[in-house]
Design a protein around this nucleic acid. Structure first.
Lengths: 214, 214
DNA sequence: GTGTTTCTTTAACTTGTGTTATAAATCCAG
DNA sequence: CTGGATTTATAACACAAGTTAAAGAAACAC
């Protein structure tokens, strides 16, 4: 899609934030939207009894807090899992720009649909696929997204995710994520070392991701 | 939100379609968007091995095929589960109207966000709640939505869903949905008769929906 | 009505994933 | 380098939900 030229011109501020910090808190009423420039963050929801469901992974280039364009407040907190540097856009300014150039609003519609498609893809995973498939598909998704952003080398990608975060994303427990990781490791399909995940056997990984199941 | 006045004026056609028919097929490239006027429909995704995940339930007032505003084709098929009558809007015309009145585009952004929020709520259900909670929450959601549309009487709502569809929505099997329904029935929490579901004990239902779990 | 098909219920049995607990790695501050 | 905190690995056991099968019930066609 690419950033809109008017938006670039009006870029206001930027910032750097450490790992494990909130980029947005639930309920926050802010008028700034953030674009991640480097680093990873997780957007999640909490249940009443304190368990977490990760809704999406934010990678460089992704927008955080876009709902502020149409909602008064942030619903889902966003926390960094690595240091993140970002730039900030004022909601009011974006709206002004959009008023001048209606095409921009269609860009928002488009972005919003992409986000929805992504969360529906995850829905299918949680509803209809087993743990092994979910993990394999998550790895493939990250590999694709990072490759598109030129952040992968060959079949290696940065991998700062803790097993607990993966569990919270895939609707599993950390223990079970560990089991499935072991299976992928022992079958020489993927390898994780020093925060880098390497896909050793792409065909096998795709196979696992697509295997018929339940 | 309410339908935009310009849109109402240009309403083109309407139609009636029987139960178990496709309102949209996957891959369809149509230039018509549909608003459901009465009846229920399901939007779903299929896995490679033919299992189904229901992504959303369309009730009267809901839009079907909205993605055609920003995408070339329909990704997820929509099938009626009751007779549906609907009205049709041409995509091109909507875009023309939107060009004249940019507010309308913001309405699309808003709608799109609502859809995303709904699918993320379901994501939390599938990732972090057990079968009983999922079903209780589905019933409460339908009750709320139908009440808002004035389609509920007291605590009774029309309920044309087959157990298999509920299963495909909640990531369960039909057999297990039957078990959970039995539990709700035997505890005198809900009752289904002649396609009408009655909430006999709202407090208990809310309790089930929120119980701490796993 | 009668027969046919589609749903639902129920039971018996299996299994994937959760739970709990502990040990082993790894990371990090000082 | 050392000690403490996180994170990961493993094992043993438990249970929610899946599977299969078969019988009832309901819906539907003629």
């Amino acid at each position: 899609m690419g950033t809109h030229p008017d938006v670039k011109r009006r870029r206001k501020k930027q910032g750097l934030i450490r790992a494990r910090q909130h980029l947005f808190r639930s309920g926050e009423t802010s008028n700034r939207i953030v674009v991640v420039r480097s680093g990873w963050a997780l957007r999640s929801a909490m249940t009443a009894d304190g368990r977490r469901q990760v809704l999406s992974i934010l990678l460089p280039g992704d927008i955080a807090g876009g709902e502020l364009l149409v909602r008064g407040q942030i619903r889902n907190p966003i926390q960094t899992i690595t240091p993140v540097d970002y730039c900030v856009f004022e909601v009011d300014q974006l709206k002004e720009i959009a008023a001048e150039d209606p095409k921009l609003v269609w860009t928002f519609v488009d972005l919003c649909f992409s986000g929805r498609e992504a969360s529906e893809a995850r829905l299918v995973d949680l509803g209809r696929r087993n743990a092994e498939q979910r993990l394999a598909r998550l790895i493939l998704e990250l590999h694709e997204r990072l490759t598109a952003k030129n952040l992968a080398e060959e079949d290696s990608i940065p991998f700062p995710l803790r097993q607990q975060s993966i569990a919270d994303m895939l609707g599993l427990t950390q223990v079970h994520v560990s089991r499935v990781m072991r299976s992928l490791r022992e079958n020489r399909i993927v390898q994780v070392r020093n925060g880098v995940l390497t896909i050793l056997d792409m065909n096998a990984l795709v196979e696992v991701a697509q295997q018929y199941s339940h």
